[in-house]
Write a protein that binds this DNA or RNA. Sequence first.
RNA 1: GGGCCUGUAGCGCAACUUGGAUAGCGCGUCUGGCUUCGGACCAGUAGGUUGCGGGUUCAAAUCCCGCCAGGCUCACCA
Length: 620
Amino acid sequence: MNAYDVLVAAVKSELSKALSAAGFIGYSLGNEVTMPERGQCDLASSVAFKAARAAKKTPIEIAAQICSKMGKVRYVREVKAENGFINFYLDRSAFSAAVISEVLAKKSGITTSTSGNGEKVIIEYPSVNPNKPWHIGHLRNALIGDTVSNLYAACGYSVEREDYIDDMGLQVVENVWGVMNLRGMPAKKYDHWLGEMYVEVNRRMEDKEVKEQIGNLLTLIEQGDTYEAKFAREMAEQCVSAQRQTAYAYGIYHDVLIWESDIMRSRLLETALGKLAKTGVLHRESEGDYNGCTILDLKKAGKLPSSMQGLKGSVKVLVRSNGTAVYAAKDIAFHMWKFGMVDNPFRYRLSERQPNNVELYMTSADGEKREYGRVNVAVNIIDMKQAYEQNVVKLALSLAGKSDAPESMVHLAYNVVELEGGAFSGRKGTWVGYTADDLLSEGKARAERLVTERLKMSGSEKEGVICAVALAAIKFEMLHISPERKIVFSWGKALTFEGLSGPYCLYMHARAARILENADAAAGPTDCSQLATDEEFRLVKLIAKCGEIVEKARSEHRSNVLTDYAGLLAAAFSKFYERYSVIEAESEELKSARIALVQAFKYALGGSLSLLGIRPLDRM
RNA sequence: GGGCCUGUAGCGCAACUUGGAUAGCGCGUCUGGCUUCGGACCAGUAGGUUGCGGGUUCAAAUCCCGCCAGGCUCACCA
């Protein structure tokens, strides 16, 4: 427990006693004690309003009554009843000293919370089809996935970062036809080259003969052991390899890639459907609209969640009449694997060692056995359009015996990134000029102009700063918007360098770094009782809340909780910075106390930015 | 038709899951501030019937009901 947790727990406990002493029994204080963002006090409780109702007295009377029964609480200087609220005023020097010394000792503002208890969680992102480059919508997915993974790891979970590669869909097959029949050698980055070819193939599909050839190709590829299937896998691997260059440029990494062709090859699908069949909800139709199909009979599934009601005929086809499986069926099988409901049938081989020095493995026809999956929690970063499919999977898992599937399988549904003209189309190629690679080059170009006019730096250091600033701008912008909200893309919005933005946070971090550099004082024994001003204490309170914020962002799967916090923290520092001097403080004691505060701030902001995938800078 | 998401200042967003004090923040507007630890900054100003209408409550942007507008979804596509 950190100082903040200790404080809140102590306040609740004392408040609880005071309530009993005043004759109020049975009031839960779950969310009744908060540290308000604004307002005069440091902690507040509104429990008197609830008690007043039962007692048929005014909240003002009750608050005063409770207040009079309050005993002494550590870090609390004064308790006052105001407007029916019970307000707590902290002993600034004691609380500041506790918070700052704690952060400096840990050398981290981030909680070492163990709420996860080493529980295993698998996080899936961004699962882009291996036939085109990432566009900015895919990037949103990847950035959310990276941050959510970081958050789980920070909260003590054991995290597996996984990417699903659908190398058997029609999209890939169309490209196989293109590579076999159209131009020869790739003239640019392979994923871009394939993506543009895909647009071309789609134009040619209006030709009946081409369409037929592609249909035949699909059949050959689905057979699994054909020349065409191997060709498709090789092409897809080359594309994934190019896409990973984009991922690395953005600092996105994974532990394992799961290939759909391996799900098929390993007969995981048959195992999974067999398991589902035992429940009696799986049905092979011999007449009607679904003659020859294997269906999931939702009428037999008991009461359906509201999100699953109103679909055609209460039936979900899992296996088509031609014997091939639909996407949802593969996903059901895959999730049975994730949760360890079936034996691990995969073999893996090393794909590469990533720039962050973590080995990346992928499923493969041959290779070694490795332990992935068998997790307690699975988080899927998937477009909200797929909510229905995700619910089908959840339902199937529940029916197959995973009764906690609705909780342990999390669909982190995010909304699309669109252009002003509308959604991206892979087929029409509206993504051209709006790939993740394009965004980063444009960001770097703009950052370079800014950096060049501000400070003199040498080649490689300058390059590093330009890249970091561009990434900070892009990531902060994408992550500060609630996932369920649509983003309409514009260059200006995506690449903001001013106001509450990624670069603003970096800038405050760099300012703090420069103070510490100039202060040259090794932080000796520090008397934080010197820190009493509003600006200083506001910073202390924000630093204190860091752990709570990280836990909240994780449990709600909302990256914007973290960006908001980082922004508030940076702004609070800026105000402190404007108003007070550290190096030229009025006394040596004050100076060393402020140095400690700046150092604690730097840890808290740097830690928050790192969780957002933004590398903090000491100079920029 | 069923389901999901969105609607908050000129623009972009936060707060809604867990009701609480004067609905915050950024951009833009207007007015100021560098002899200063880095101005990618700060201080101040103007701008709101939180889509509409009911209800619950001491208290509603938040919860409930009914509308309106926009988007998505309900495939033998993935």
